[in-house]
Write a protein that binds this DNA or RNA. Structure first.
Lengths: 233, 233
DNA sequence: GAGTGGTCTAGACCACTTT
DNA sequence: AAGTGGTCTAGACCACTCC
């Protein structure tokens, strides 16, 4: 029993989802059907489906079935956009300005990103909430993984939904490193602040379902009217 | 089947742990024994134990058994102390200064803390890493839940381990709200900074295994040499 | 009523740890 | 060798959704 049966069932389904064979929203076979198809018992298929639900890749509902998780702008924001009003409510940010450029990767980008890309796409954005610019973010992705993206401006508000729909790249996790700094000049200008005003500096590495580092993102955030919410356990 | 059997098994065990009947490190009955004791099958007892492991309350190891999770200063820091060196390594902070006072709760403290306490204990600490003060934190807990704590100074480095060992209060989750601010005068002084230097302001609500808000904590952190690490999913 | 996931049982065998 | 958790099976019944 080197690798458990349910593990291979999970891998099979993950592969089908990552390849686009099972697009967002598709209904999966029932526990019984899946077990029959893959030659395992219903209980083993069930265990695999439950782990997939836990990881967020599928959603299950009694009486309805199992479905590939649909990532909407709302759910994506809820998971990966952490700025909230002090009472905890989330207000979707508006896109103010966007610049997309292709350039060669820096050494650290080449070292960090999946596939050591020669070229990357840099997406610079300013987003605002309630008419107030709050975030200045710079995202960097491998050019080869996202062909033609530079010609598709303006890009949708939530990039991760777009990555999934247009490129079958499913972001499932993001590791962030936060710090407080004085606003750099460019960000200060974009956010309407004096240079040196305390802002939150966030460096993110976004990882997809195949554990590939797909995006590096740095954002400078105003936190005078909003808070960055996080839960530890 | 209003409440599933495994749910009542879970609740039974949680109660035994929270009451101190099963202290940290104790071995639990095996799946078979537990099932026999509570009148359920081995599979149902197993499901309960697996959920308890997932929630972090117990740890299981093949061939050894199931044990109430031992919270050491190391594991507690790993979970709830997020400041790391840029390469991700964690260095335990030293306790520089500590002040413990009893006072009446403010209105917001009374509203937020479990049991609307009349009196609270305030623990003010300065902690340093590598000889450099990095954190100025103020923790507030209900006085009635922690009798005699004011007379036990100096308190151990990791408060949550102490809460559990001395009072059977098991912190399992902490919700934090972060922001960047200019260092307030008192914190600037404690951290050896000029007032107004950008620092990270963290407001925490710590919740125990019975979902009670047990502690409010505000900390001011230097993030020039360290980063605050967090993972989103 | 048919089909789905959710719960529960009983039993088997394997892998691992400890004595 | 004994005892533990880990995997897997087969079958049953319940609760829910949808037609």
């Amino acid at each position: 029993m080197a690798t458990p049966l349910y593990r291979t069932v999970i891998d099979t389904i993950v592969e089908r989802i990552a390849s686009g064979e099972l697009p967002s929203g598709t209904m999966l076979p029932s526990e019984t059907q899946l077990g029959a198809e893959l030659g395992v018992s219903q209980g083993t298929a069930r265990k695999a489906l439950m782990e997939l639900e836990q990881s967020g890749l599928v959603q299950r509902a009694q009486g309805r079935g199992t479905f590939v998780t649909v990532r909407t702008p709302e759910t994506s924001l809820f998971n990966f956009f952490r700025l909230r009003h002090p009472d905890g409510t989330l207000e979707g940010p508006q896109l103010d300005r966007e610049t997309v450029t292709r350039r060669s990767a820096t050494d650290t980008e080449r070292a960090d990103l999946h596939g050591s890309p020669e070229d990357v796409i840099e997406i610079e954005r300013v987003r605002s909430i309630g008419g107030q610019p709050v975030t200045h973010e710079m995202s960097v992705i491998p050019a080869a993984m996202f062909p033609g993206i530079a010609e598709r401006q303006p890009l949708p508000n939530t990039l991760y939904v777009f990555y999934q729909q247009a490129y079958s790249v499913i972001i499932v996790r993001a590791d962030e490193r936060l710090g407080a700094i004085g606003a750099p000049e460019a960000s200060a200008k974009a956010l309407g602040l004096d240079a040196g005003t305390p802002v939150m500096d966030v460096r993110r590495r976004a990882v997809d379902v195949l554990e590939r580092v797909v995006e590096l993102r740095r954002s400078i955030n105003r936190t005078d009217a909003l808070d960055y919410f996080v839960s530890l356990s």
